[in-house]
Structures are given as C-alpha cells and as structure tokens.
Design a protein around this nucleic acid. Structure first.
Lengths: 356, 356
DNA sequence: TTGAAAGCGCTAACAA
DNA sequence: TTGTTAGCGCTTTCAA
C-alpha cells in the first residue's frame, strides 16, 4: 500500500468486492444494505483506516446551503457593527463551499422590528441559523419553529440554555467580572469606593449583566471583604444628557474612585463623562474595543477593556454552522472565548491581529 | 443569471467565446495566451465577479504536497511541546487536502543535531518548510539552499529578517516588554527594585531577548524616570542548582521587589526559587502558559504571564504554508499575535479555549 | 439490495 | 496559441 496515496471509496469497494455505491451507502447509512455487504465494507474500512475525502464529497454533493443570521442592526452600535463585520468575512470565506448567507437586522428597542426580522429570516428558508438572542423574551416562538423544522441554530454573544442551540459562542460572564475586579483592585488600592454601572438599551432583557456583577463582587469579597464600598446602578440608554447627569451625580455623591461598566457602549459613555468632568484619576474598566473605547483608552480615560471579540464570535458561529451543514461535524456545545485583558500597551497588538 | 448558482469556468469560457483551458490559463497565468483572449476572459470574469472554486481546484490538481517542520525537540521543553501540538493538529487538519507533513527535531545545545535535522528535512524533499530559527547562526546555509530550490519557508517564534521568509508568525518583542513593564509597575509601586532575567539555553543565539528588555526599560523610563532601579542579568541554563544559587544571590543582594523574566522556561525556574525562599511578595512576570508556569500562577508565585501562543503560532504557520501551496494565497509578511495578558483570574479561560 | 454511469468544477496532458 | 478530453473522489439517479 502506497503510504502517500489516500485510500478511496473505490479501493474499499474492490477490497470488499462490492460497488462504490454500496460503500457510499454504508458510509452515510442510507438505503438498504445486506448484512454481508455491510460487514465486508466495514472490515475493509477498519483495516485501511479509511477517511472520507471531504473535498470530493462536497463537490459531489453540489448542494447549496443557506444560512440566515439574526442580529441587532449594525448601524445602531459599533459592537454589532463588529459582529456584522465577522459575518461579512465569513460570508466571503464560505461562498466557495456553496454556502449562501443573508443577514436580518432588528432594533433592540423595538419588538416589532424583531418579529419582522424573524419572519423575514424564516421566509428565506434557511438550512441553518446564527442568532444573537439578546431579546430572548420575544424569540421563544422562533426557536420552537426552528426545532420543529429541524433547522439547526447557533447562538452567539448571549446564551439561552433552555432554547438548546447546537452551540453557543461567547464568554464566561461571571469570570469576566472577576477579571475586572482583579484589575480594578490592584489599581485602586488603597482607595475604596467602587461603582458598577449597567448601561443598556433594554433593561428587562439585560439580566445576563448581573452575572458580571456577581463575579466582580465575589472576587472583591474573597480578597478584601468589606474593605471596598461597592454600589451598582442600572441605567437605561435614552437621552444622553440625562445619562450623563446620572453618572455625574453617582460619581460625586458616592465619591467614586473606580468604575466597572458591564457593557461596551456604556464604557465609552462613562469615559466621556469622566473626560468632561476632568476625572482621569478614576480607574475605569469596561468591555470591548469599540472605536470610541479605543480612543478613550489611548487618552487614558479607560484603563482596561475586557475583549469579547464580537467579530470573531460571529465569524466562528458561521464556521461552526457551515461545518455542521457540509460535513456533519458537530460544534462544541459551548465555546467560551479567552478573557482578553486589553490595556494601553497591548491594544495595538489586538487591533493589528486579524481573524485567523 | 441565477443568483444562487456560482459561475464556473465553463460559464466564463462561453461568455468569452474560448475554451475552459484558456480560462484556466489566464486564471493561473500559465502558458501563452493571445492578448484578445486574455482581454475577453478578463472582461467576463470582472463582469460576473468570478471566484475560483477551490474545492474543485484541489480535487482536480490531485497533487501531494509535503511540508517539513524544523523545530527544537518537544521532549526537551514544554514550550516546544506546545508548538509541536499545534503542528500535530495542523497535520490532521490538512491531510484531507493532500498535504503530508514530517517534523524534524533538534537539540538547542547541540549544533550537530541541528545540522542533522536540517539534512534530514531536505532529504524529505519538501514543497515547503516551517522553521523555528532559534539557532540562526547555524541555519544560513539552509536558507540559501531553500532559496535556490525555490522552496517557500515560513518562520515562527523567532524572526530573521535577512533570511526573507515568505512569512513570520510571532510577537512584537519590544511591545511585549512594555506590556510586562506596565503590569509590573502598577503592582510594584511604591517598591522600586526590579530585576530582568534572561534565562536561556544558548546565550549567543539569545539576542532577541534584548528586545524585550528594551521595551521594558523604555516604558519605565517614560512613566517614572529614575524612580525604579533596574538590573538585568544573562543566565545560562546548565546546572539547575547553580542557576538557583545565582537567582537567589541576585534577589538578596539587590533587594529585589519585582522580576521580569524574558523566557518561558526561565519563568518557572525563577518561580521555583521564589517558592523555595518563601518570597511570594515579589511580583513575578514571565512568559507563556507552560504546565509548570500554570501551576506557579495558581499558587500565586507568578503574577502575570504574557502568552506567546506557541501552539497557535505553529498551527497557523502550517495553514499559511498550505494555503500558499494549494491556492497560491500569499500569507502576510509578518503576523504579530496579540499580547495576551494572563493572570490567575483568566488563565482557565485561555486553557479551555481551543484553536479555531 | 445492488451496480453502472453521469455529473460536480477544475486540472493537465495531448493534439491540433 | 488554443481546444478536447480524461481524470480527481464522491454523490446520486436509474435500471436491474
């Protein structure tokens, strides 16, 4: 046996004394096969350690798969713009494998826009879906339809375990809170007044932010129980002026020394307030390398960002789905990304790094 | 034109009024083509935004490519074990594309073992090579041979710019020194005595470590000029006892408060000394998530590791080479990885993350 | 339950 | 300089 040449279905067929069609049938467990044929083929495959040639397989199949992506409008927010950029890269990456993609956007403040996107996505009759289920209260109907139709779906960014996606791609929120606390504590000490800010469009769907707070508080308690004063606040993004006023009030009233913001957009909003009131001394830690956050970090207003890698999350989601559709390769049930600590000194290295 | 169906060479050929072979020729710029044919084909490709089907292309080519990998023996060192694990994963990943790989190991303390590995790699008659050129003084002959034979080669971990590899995958050493300094400074202040340790098998080939030191010193100078006392030392790994003694002496004599170690193995060696002399108070920052380093970090003896991602570097090196061989896709001339800051709180998230 | 054969899109040897 | 054609390994239809 030539070590270098791979064994083909044809080789197996010859060894087993059957036709290639029969081998194909046992390979994919379709059609009816006699016991004898099955055994002979299995034996030959075992012996030769046969591996299906996926390249030839996809070419032979020549089927077109469609993937629908459901996420908040990238125009609304730089975070979702980055996710969407991952989607676009993935799209280019997978056309050649006969995978077609279509994105459906919704507005997080508007339930009807979500319902509409949902409807449109289904009308696209996708073979798989990638979803950022940030409005999960509204999405249950969708998941049921998908389950019924046996359309596989993957979540990214936010998970809804009960909905049982075939995979979730995101981060360990609790642990990310701990990472934030570790960073903040070492910079803050011996100062002691901390604010946790949850700044979010849709407070009722923002329960997952509490996980970050839990991690944050646990870490502090473990290390320096009762030394720090921690206050947390839920702030809704509506008027920017009002938000600014609220943040300013909190900082002054509680005599704040350090701030942990649980959302990416909130990070830049808070940084802008710190800039306005001239408080670079306050240690600020937030999430994600949004354009504005990058600027504030370089200005020294944001000290640390925990990178959730929205672009990579989305890109990987498409890869997982494509591999599942094309090659029946099951993705991990949960893929939690590394908790990347971004500071002034390494931020450029993250910006330069591309998706691999 | 059916939006869903991809355009094929055949379609282009029909549009341009030529044969598929002619289209193939302009696609790969081989053979002779008349100006008219060229223009017609180009026009048709532009119009339809034609994309080569790589699946069909690899299948059609049906050529076997061989990649030789040259790196230090993974048995010697957990760092190279991780690189090697990336190689193994890559190997499994690319067999299906008719890429065969063979690794050739050498001992960093032994020039003749390097020469031998070199010779064996060439005897394998590879179509491409992936090299960790850590013994570059000995490798120049090899690079010349490869250039002459027009065998493309990629470096990882260490770069030798003069050797002009088609790509280098690694990290910005200077900037990684700055990241180390940033971390150390915030933890150390108001203490002030810092040691930089270069602990390396082969001092004469360890010039690149000085880059890390330069970054480290620059940062400190910019932020707090003259406040900190920094001493640096080159220590050769030979007898462990002697090394331990040397490190202990330095710590005591210079009254050290914080240590920056420029190598991964050096990090664990230093941590073990700190453990032995009971000095958890000393802030230690090093490189890479070697097994031992992970343990020391969890014990609190190492405060921070800068992750060079050896596994991913190697894996990506193979991907770049494979894409180049199969699809003529040129990799970036340099791919510098993010400078990942690993601490006790996020180390598990890095350990769980797989290669994507 | 099985096999023959055409076809997927591209490559490359060969002939013209 | 160009075109014809037989593959590459697998899938799938159709007939037996």
């Amino acid at each position: 046996m030539d070590e270098n040449k791979s064994i083909r279905i044809k080789d197996i067929a010859e060894m087993a004394g059957v036709s290639v069609a029969t081998v194909d049938r046992v390979l994919h467990q379709r059609g009816k096969i006699s016991k004898e044929s099955l055994e002979k083929v299995m034996k030959a495959m075992k012996q030769t350690n046969y591996k299906l040639n996926l390249i030839a397989s996809t070419l032979g199949t020549n089927k077109l798969y469609k993937i629908a992506v459901l996420l908040p409008d990238p125009k609304d927010d730089d975070f979702w713009r980055q996710s969407n950029s991952g989607i676009i890269k993935a799209k280019e990456n997978w056309v050649q494998y006969n995978i077609r993609m279509e994105s459906f956007y919704f507005n997080m403040n508007d339930k009807s826009s979500f319902m509409n996107a949902e409807k449109q996505a289904l009308a696209f009759s996708p073979d798989g879906m990638l979803i950022a289920p940030v409005m999960h209260r509204e999405a249950n109907i969708l998941f049921n339809i998908l389950k019924e139709k046996k359309i596989p779906y993957i979540f990214f960014n936010t998970n809804i375990i009960e909905a049982e996606p075939i995979s979730f791609i995101g981060q360990d929120l609790y642990q990310s809170g701990r990472v934030g606390a570790e960073f903040l504590m070492t910079r803050l000490f011996p100062r002691k007044n901390i604010a946790i800010l949850h700044i979010w469009e849709d407070v009722q769907n923002g329960v997952h932010l509490k996980e970050k707070e839990r991690g944050f508080r646990d870490y502090i308690t473990e290390k320096k129980n009762k030394y720090f004063n921690i206050h947390s606040y839920n702030l809704k993004i509506c008027g920017e002026k009002e938000l600014n006023r609220e943040i300013t009030t909190i900082i002054k009233r509680d005599n704040i020394d350090g701030i942990f913001v649980s959302t990416s957009k909130g990070s830049s909003l808070t940084a802008s307030v710190l800039g306005k009131i001239g408080r670079k001394d306050i240690v600020l830690i937030g999430y994600d390398m949004l354009k504005e956050n990058i600027i504030y970090m370089k200005e020294g207003l944001i000290n640390c960002l925990i990178n959730q890698n929205p672009e990579k999350q989305a890109f990987l989601g498409v890869s997982y789905l494509s591999n599942f559709l094309l090659f029946k390769k099951r993705p991990p049930v949960t893929d939690l990304f590394p908790l990347e600590i971004v500071t002034k000194e390494n931020i450029d290295s993250f910006l330069n790094a591309s998706i691999h």
